[in-house]
Computed example of a mutant assay.
Amino acid sequence: MPHSHTGVPGAVMDEACPVTEVLDHVSGKWSIGILIAAAHGPVRFTELERTINGISRRMLTLNLRRLERDGLLVRTVYPTVPPKVEYSLTLMARELYASLTGLVGWAERHRSAVSQARVAYDAAAEQGSDAVW
């Protein structure tokens, strides 16, 4: 079986690439915010835009399309003037949301410990300590 430059068999790398791609999509800063915002029911584009701090309209549009393409969001267009568009989580995304809430809870619980570890690491690095490496 051919090996890649990482020493992993080629077939394993071929199977892992889609997994890595999906993880990259759902772990992105904007994707997580969108999934969390849409978890409580259908949400409109303008609501998402207001809820997710710092996201541009273009970035929101790109992320919504990608999440829809990945099967995580359903886009519903209502025939009104102007058209009303809502986004909802799919069953697959609801399962992912459960994992995300666990991760968010972990981050909230350990935020100060991570901050303290960074300060200690940076202080040791400034002193030229070999303990950092």
Score class of each variant (00 low, 15 high):
Glu68His: 00
Thr101Met: 11
Glu126Tyr: 15
Trp30Ile: 12
His40Pro: 04
Pro83Met: 07
Arg50Phe: 04
Ala11Lys: 05
Val22Ile: 09
Ala107Glu: 14
Leu103Asp: 04
Leu72His: 05
Arg66Asn: 09
Ala123Asp: 09
Gly102Lys: 11
Glu126Gln: 14
Arg65Trp: 12
Arg109Phe: 06
Gly41Cys: 02
Ser31His: 05
Met59Glu: 10
Tyr78Glu: 12
Val12Tyr: 13
Glu21Lys: 07
Leu35Asn: 02
Arg118Trp: 05
Leu48Glu: 02
Arg118Tyr: 11
Leu72Ile: 03
Arg50Gln: 08
Glu86Lys: 00
Asn63Ser: 08
Tyr121Lys: 10
Arg57Cys: 13
His110Ser: 12
Leu23Cys: 00
Ala98Leu: 08
Ile55Trp: 10
Val119Gly: 00
Arg118Val: 00
Phe45Thr: 02
Gln127Gly: 07
Ile55Asp: 01
Tyr87His: 09
Pro83Tyr: 08
Ala123Glu: 14
Tyr97Arg: 06
Glu86Leu: 01
Leu62Cys: 14
Met92Pro: 03
Val104Ala: 06
Asp122Ser: 10
Ile36Phe: 05
Val43Trp: 01
Ala93Arg: 01
Leu100Trp: 07
Asn63Phe: 03
Asp122Ala: 13
Leu73Ser: 00
His25Phe: 07
Pro79Ile: 07
Pro2Tyr: 11
Ala131Ile: 13
Val104Leu: 14
Arg58Phe: 13
Arg57Gln: 13
Lys29Gln: 07
Ala93Lys: 03
Ala131Glu: 15
Met13Thr: 11
Pro83Gly: 04
Val104Asp: 10
Thr76Val: 08
Arg58Leu: 12
Cys17Pro: 05
Ser112Gln: 08
Val119Leu: 03
Leu64Lys: 00
Met1Ile: 01
Ala93Gly: 03
Ala125Ile: 09
Lys29Phe: 15
Leu96Ser: 00
Trp30Gln: 14
Val81Glu: 14
Ala123His: 12
Leu73Gln: 01
Ala16Thr: 05
Arg69Met: 11
Asn63Glu: 13
Arg58Ser: 14
Val8Ser: 06
Ala16Glu: 14
Arg69Tyr: 05
Thr51His: 08
Val104Gln: 04
Thr51Trp: 05
Thr61Asn: 15
Thr6His: 02
Ala107Pro: 07
Ala117Tyr: 02
Arg57Trp: 02
Trp30Ala: 15
Gln127Trp: 08
Leu60Gln: 06
Val114Pro: 05
Arg94Asn: 12
Phe45Asp: 06
Arg57Ser: 06
